[in-house]
Simulated scan of single mutants.
Amino acid sequence: MQSPIHFSHARASELTRAWLSVGCLLLFVVPGCSQRTENKSSDATDESATNVSVQLNWYPEVEHGGVYQSVVDGTYESLGLRVSIQPGGRATQVASELATARSQFAITNADDVVLARSQGADVVAVMAAVQDHPRCILVRADSGVERLDDLSGLTLQRQAGRAFLAFLEQGGYLEDVRQVPYHNSIAAMVTDPKIAVQAYSVAEPLIAEQQGLEVRTLMVSELGWNPYSSVLVTTGGMIRESPEIVREMVAGTVAGWKAFLKNPEKANAAILKANQHGMTKEALQFGAEQMIPLAMPSGNPDEVGTMSAERWEMLVSQMAELELVEADSVKSEDCFTTEFLPSVK
C-alpha cells in the first residue's frame, strides 16, 4: 500500500483556512500558559515545570522533528518546560488554538504568518527551522522537463489557491500548463510521463522511487519563492507577558533541531508512534536526510533557526505584489522577532 506520507502537503491549504477562520476569537487572546496536560509528550514529573502546548499544522512528520527531539531527549524538561505536542490534521484550526491560548506555540510556514497577520491575527515567528522551503514540482525523468520553465504542455496536479502557484503563474512558468486538482497521490505519474505534481522534496521523491519511477525534483525556491518553513510561532501577547518562557522554548527548539539533524533516530521513533496515518520508518529516515541541506544550506549548524529582516521584507513584498494580501496591510517587522534566538545578539 502506498505510504500516506504524500498527504502531508494538503496541509498548506488547510492551514490557510484555519488562519482565516479565527474571526472574533482574535479579540480575546489570553496570554500566558495553558494548564492543559492531556496528550502530553513528556514524562516530566517536576511540579515546578511550566506546561506548554505546541500545535502542529499537520500530522506529525519530519517537518516537526526538532520539537519531538527536544521532548524525547529531555531538552525542554531541562529548561523547565513540560511540553505537550498537539498533532494537527485536515481540520486543525491553528490560529484558534493560539488565539484562545489552548496552545502557546505552533508550527507553520512563513507565508501563512503573513496571511494570518493580514487577517488581524497576533501571530509572531520566533524561529525558523527550515531555511530553504521543500516545495517542488515533481516530474518524470523521461518527461523532457529539466527546469521549471520547461513545463509547457504538461498537466500539473496542484491544490488551487496556494501562494507558490500565484508566484509561478506571475512568472509565466505555468503558461500552456493544464492545471487539475491534486488528489494527494502521484499515481497518475506512473502511467503518464506528461503529468507533474506539486510535492515536497522530503517526501514524494521517495514514493516515486518505491513505485519504480525515475523523477526529477524542481525546487521552487530556486526561482525566488522561498518562505521559511517549520516556523515556530507564538502570539504578541505571549511575548509581552511571558518572554522567559518564549526564550526557553526557542532555545529548546533550536537545540532540538540541531540534534535531530545529526541523529533523528529517537525523534523519528516518537513521530512514527504519534503519526497514526500510515507513516513508515523508511519515509521518516528519507525525510530527515533531505532536511539537512534545507535547514543548513551553508552546512553551518548555527544557521538553524535563524531569520533575517531581508527575507521577511521580500516575502511580504512578494505576497502584496501577488495580491495575496493587501498592500500595506502587513508590516514585515511585525511578522517575526529574532530577540529570542540564541545566536542573535
Rank of each mutant, 00 (worst) to 15 (best):
E265M: 06
G74A: 03
T16Q: 10
E214V: 04
N51M: 08
N226K: 06
R140I: 06
G88I: 00
S96H: 10
G256K: 08
S3E: 14
I186N: 08
L284N: 07
R140A: 04
V197W: 03
A203L: 02
E209I: 00
A259H: 12
E169Q: 13
S70D: 09
G120S: 09
A110K: 08
T155M: 02
Q69L: 01
G212D: 10
Y182P: 03
G171I: 06
W19Q: 12
W19S: 05
L223Q: 15
P264H: 04
Y182K: 04
V250C: 08
G224L: 02
T100P: 14
M279F: 10
V30K: 15
E38Q: 13
D122Y: 00
T45G: 15
H6V: 13
S78Q: 11
P87H: 03
Q93L: 07
S78V: 05
S221K: 13
H9C: 02
S118V: 05
Y200F: 13
Q2S: 12
T234E: 04
M319I: 00
I137V: 09
L151Y: 10
K266L: 11
E321V: 00
S152Y: 12
V316M: 03
S298A: 08
A208Y: 14
E97R: 14
F340N: 10
A110D: 06
Q35S: 09
Y200C: 04
K281I: 04
L15K: 07
K281A: 10
G66Y: 04
A91P: 02
S343H: 15
S3M: 06
G32D: 05
E313M: 09
V215T: 13
Q276T: 13
N300W: 03
I107G: 06
N51P: 09
A196E: 01
M296D: 04
K262N: 05
D150V: 12
A251K: 14
S242Y: 14
L148V: 05
K40T: 12
N109C: 03
E204Y: 03
N300H: 07
E265A: 12
T235V: 02
